[in-house]
Nucleic acid binder design. Sequence first.
DNA 1: TCATAAATCTAGCATCGCTATATTGTCAAT
DNA 2: ATTGACAATATAGCGATGCTAGATTTATGA
Lengths: 190, 190
Amino acid sequence: MGINERKERERAEREQRIVAAARMLAERDGWPSVTVRRLADEIEYSQPVLYAHFANRDAIVGAVALEGFAELGPTLRKAVRGNATPAQALEDVATAYLDFAFERPALYEAMFVLPTGIRFAKSDTPQVLRDAFGAMMAVIEPVSADPEISTETFWAALHGLTELERHGRIRAPFRAERVKRIVGMFAMAK
Amino acid sequence: MGINERKERERAEREQRIVAAARMLAERDGWPSVTVRRLADEIEYSQPVLYAHFANRDAIVGAVALEGFAELGPTLRKAVRGNATPAQALEDVATAYLDFAFERPALYEAMFVLPTGIRFAKSDTPQVLRDAFGAMMAVIEPVSADPEISTETFWAALHGLTELERHGRIRAPFRAERVKRIVGMFAMAK
DNA sequence: TCATAAATCTAGCATCGCTATATTGTCAAT
DNA sequence: ATTGACAATATAGCGATGCTAGATTTATGA
């Protein structure tokens, strides 16, 4: 009898609805507006039900962050032109990264700024996360003798550009200029 | 009669005690533990008194952030060796920046991550802020044809290194390696 | 049909940022 | 010195928050 299977399926569906609702509310009204009560309203269950799926609010943010990583990897891979030079590939990835961040600021915030409990660069790091890192490393490898360190550094540079601009610390209109500088330097590094 | 002067002096002292308490609590227990109630306890006044000094909690965080900027500028300037080459000067500043961030994580968080209402790169940007930016630009100028853009980019790279490491996204033991990469690239850029 | 167990909800706790209102303290004019 | 006005400060409370204990409904299998 597939009763348990049905239950498990319904449970998974409900969990997905929670995550989707959190993402939608965060993107529409900002993360502070994503409260457990509002999420409960949104999925038409009472509050305690959410705690049968997630340990706490942070874990819900973490689930949204995971979705983000699952999308970021493929996005970066697709962004690279087919016949790109190493320098062009770097630029494609850098531009796609910033576009990703600014088109989905709340998602990006969940991935990199908010507390989520997700562990990185550890044995239990989710595959989607390693894959996103891999997408960056793929374009760094041709221009670096130590791709792992270089990818971390490249990623950090892009993250810094994103965050400082998002907080109004640096001038938004000059984004492309800064990307050009970063890409140029990494392309010449080897 | 200096009665009003005395009152103003006492007021300023109390305000400073609020900011100091906020900074201390944040550094000791993290920013979420810095509540208006706890601050009121700390300065031995009731809650509403804090609102005679600051519009809201964010403004208190902002006051702490301002202290941070006032300290960051001089810290970076002092970090540069007397007879440093342009590349060495860059390295000194980069290292000092990361040390600053990791020695006072809560202060750094107030300056660059938390909402504070401080406006950057605008006409009403506080002087301490311009000065901190100037300290970075001073070491960028010798190696860049467009120091303003380069300083923004350099700053972003350092901020990214800080944040990704603080969140465990990149491997802490390799911090020096990454700094070396960044500094090397900026030193060769011109 | 019914007892049991699973699923779900109601109601509440402690805490938060913030504020209306009451109270205390201080000063200046009589 | 007394008192009336005003400034300084406190009490108490509102509407939220995250989270949970305990009551209640619903589904399951004998």
